[in-house]
Simulated assay, not measured.
Amino acid sequence: MTSRERVLEHITKNPGITFRKLAQELEMGIGNLQYHLRHLERENKIVAKKLGGRKYIFPADFSESYKPLMIAISNESQRKILILLAEDEKNQHELAEKLNLTPSTINYHMERLEALGLVRKIKHGKNVIYQPNYDKDVLIRIIREYKPKIWDRLADKLIDLTLTFRGEEYD
């Protein structure tokens, strides 16, 4: 398999991967990777989307409607926020408290999620409520299909939580 085929295969298996993570996982030099990505883009085999100083790379045939979710779930804090919002709308204080993050950190992530079109903010006086603007079933399916390591961690946490409620330990 050629280097270019390896790059394309890795992007196909990991849609929305960042440039740096792709270079790291393939153990490929930045210049070499840039060369192959330019060719793959010219051949219309991949597309790149820039957001917040990062470049996210997708196979050309990847669904446009899934791209924002893939970008968001690649960040752990944003993934957790989306999962919490899938339960019910929340305000900044509730999110900060549940995730043990500062309000300014929540604000940063909410701005990114808003830019991706994944959340709506509704002002109630001084209070801002965030609502999900995505299909919750699609979020779960994307996590399960494209981020199996994340899905495994979520399943492990659910098992731990269930056993904790029952007073048992799991190893």
Rank of each mutant, 00 (worst) to 15 (best):
K55H: 06
Q92D: 07
I73E: 09
K90I: 08
L82G: 09
A72S: 08
I30H: 13
M28I: 13
Y35I: 10
A96L: 01
I129A: 10
L33Q: 07
P15M: 06
K90M: 15
W151I: 06
S63C: 08
N133E: 09
L82C: 04
K126N: 15
R20V: 12
P68K: 02
K157F: 06
N91H: 09
Y146W: 10
Y108G: 01
Y146N: 04
E5M: 10
N127H: 11
L69D: 08
R120K: 14
L8S: 12
D152Q: 11
R4W: 10
T2W: 02
E89C: 14
L161C: 00
T162S: 05
K121M: 07
L84N: 03
L69K: 10
L37Q: 05
N44V: 02
L161S: 10
V7N: 05
A155H: 04
A96F: 00
Y66H: 15
Y134K: 06
H39N: 12
L37V: 07
A155V: 11
R6A: 01
R20D: 15
T12I: 12
K80A: 14
T162D: 00
E114Q: 14
A23Q: 02
R4P: 06
R20L: 12
V138A: 13
I129C: 07
T12M: 08
L85E: 01
G125E: 13
Q24S: 12
E89I: 04
E169I: 04
P15G: 00
I46W: 02
R120I: 05
G16T: 03
Y146G: 01
